[in-house]
């Protein structure tokens, strides 16, 4: 017992030490010097930027006559951000669900009786796993860049660029969640004669649903952030306004945009948590 405890503590120490050494090595490779963070020049500008956090702008810092009121314009770009995220998720969730369904073996009928069907299902299984891995291994921004260079900028292309990796990620997590849950209800249904599909739909899916829903909400939140980032490659979301404000050193306006994004993320997080609680009981 004592020896086991010691080994446990020893490998904990080894893990921590390993991570710390790796981090220091990486810092050295990147040439990170903590002193540079506290150099006089950076401190001034950083101080100016972060002190603006305490007084976010409520109107334009350099008002242009005839422009839309600042808060209204900010709110509109926030809504556009939400819209872009919802569109991307509207494509990604069905695609991800379909992919994860094909990548899971939980709904397969008894394959001992259907040889040919088994081969086909296995082929489908590996193809969808490979598609999942490929789709998510390329970052959404790179998909966006590829689409922009290949055809040009449009909102459809941007939505699809986000939806491709997102369906891969959703499919991966959905299928992991389907694997993780206990199979007893599913097996009970099968033992009284339910087919593979029915046992999957009524025995396994309801159990995994709360997890699936809350992960989908988390992903919607990620989609919001991605939508903001796509403002930097030209789609007019809140990120676009952040970039414009930054070009003119309007730090207080930037903080307003960041706080709005935070409010939306917090709202979605709260909504998702509430739904999860209801589904679990």
């Amino acid at each position: 017992m004592n020896g086991a405890l010691q080994r446990c503590a020893g490998s904990r120490r080894a893990t921590l030490l390993g991570i710390a050494l790796a981090a220091l090595l990486c810092g050295w490779l990147l040439g990170l010097d903590p002193r540079r963070l506290f150099a006089d020049g950076t401190l001034g500008l950083a101080g100016e930027f972060f002190s603006a956090a305490f007084r976010p702008a409520l109107s334009y810092e350099d008002p242009v006559p005839g422009a839309q009121p600042f808060l209204l314009a900010a709110l509109r770009s926030l809504l556009d951000t939400l819209r872009f995220a919802v569109l991307a998720m509207a494509v990604a969730v069905p695609c991800g669900a379909l992919l994860s369904f094909f990548a899971s073996s939980a709904w397969w009928p008894d394959l001992r009786r259907h040889r040919a069907l088994g081969l086909a299902l296995r082929a489908l299984h590996s193809t969808s796993r490979a598609a999942m891995a490929f789709a998510r291994s390329i970052h959404e921004l790179l998909w966006g860049l590829l689409f922009i260079t290949a055809i040009g900028l449009s909102s459809e292309a941007a939505v699809i660029a986000v939806a491709i990796p997102y369906s891969g990620i959703l499919a991966k997590i959905y299928s992991e969640m389907l694997e993780e849950h206990a199979r007893d209800a599913q097996e009970a249904l099968r033992s009284i004669g339910a087919g593979g599909l029915a046992a999957f739909a009524f025995g396994l899916l309801p159990r995994a649903l709360p997890d699936i829903v809350s992960y989908t909400f988390y992903r919607l939140e990620c989609a919001l952030r991605t939508a903001a980032v796509f403002g930097f490659i030209g789609i007019e979301t809140i990120g676009y306004r952040i970039r414009l404000a930054s070009d003119e050193f309007h730090y207080r306006e930037i903080w307003t945009y960041l706080y709005l994004l935070f409010a939306l993320v917090a709202l979605i997080e709260w909504w998702g948590a509430a739904i999860r609680r209801r589904l679990k009981t």
Partner: peptide, 22 residues
Amino acid sequence: TRSLPEYVLGFLLISVLGPDPW
């Protein structure tokens, strides 16, 4: 802090700190 997208933060921090891996 979670609601701030990495890429946007990176852009803002570069405008404050200059082109530094930090």
